[in-house]
Structures are given as C-alpha cells and as structure tokens.
C-alpha cells in the first residue's frame, strides 16, 4: 500500500518537523520507495526468532547510589536558546 501524503503529514507532526508542500511531495515519494524496499523483510519467517535489540547482549549493569556534584547552573544554562538565569524559557506550554 503506497504511503499517502496525509500519512506523511501526520508523521511530520509526530516527529515535530514541518515540511513545505514541495518537500512533502518529495518526502512522500522517497519514503514510499524506502518503505517498499525494507518491506522485503516480510518474506522471512521469523516466528521462532527472539528479537535482538543490542549488539552485545549483556545484563544487569548498575551504578552505586552515590551523589555526585551537579553542574553549575550558569554552565548548564549557557547553551540555552532562552533562559533567565534560573530557568529555561520556552513558549507557553498551556493549550498543548
């Protein structure tokens, strides 16, 4: 089933991207080609296969519950696009 423009538009909102109309057309065609290609995996029977999420399958890696000095606030906020010396500032979160 080919990808539709509407689907791609919906995904762009989920991904918090915005595509101009001509970008949307190109993206739809390109994604459709890629998705068409990756769909060849469907021909493999994988019912009895355990998924492999990690390249090296280790377990139980922990750190001790020890407090380490936090970073200086000024240093943390130095890279913020907008801050008031105490907080990060973002457009109003209300209504979202």
């Amino acid at each position: 089933m080919p990808l539709t423009r509407e689907q791609v538009e919906k995904v762009s909102l989920l991904a918090r991207l915005r595509l101009a109309p001509e970008e949307l057309a190109t993206m739809t065609a390109q994604l459709d080609a890629i998705v068409g290609y990756v769909e060849q995996l469907a021909e493999l029977d994988t019912t009895a296969v355990e998924p492999m999420a990690h390249a090296v399958e280790q377990t139980n890696v922990f750190r001790p519950d020890e407090v380490r000095a936090s970073f200086d606030r000024a240093e943390m906020l130095a890279g913020a696009p907008k801050a008031d010396g105490q907080f990060y500032l973002v457009p109003a979160v209300l209504g979202d």
Binding site: L13, R16, L17, L19, P91, A92, V93, D96
Partner: peptide, 16 residues
C-alpha cells in the same frame, strides 16, 4: 499549532 509546537517544528525543520 500552539506556539510551543510551532517552536518545535520550525526549530527542527530549520536545524536539520
């Protein structure tokens, strides 16, 4: 889009 969602979408589309 709200101001916040708009900020996200514009920033990311310009940045990538």
């Amino acid at each position: 889009d709200t101001a916040l969602v708009r900020m996200y979408r514009r920033s990311r589309s310009e940045g990538f």
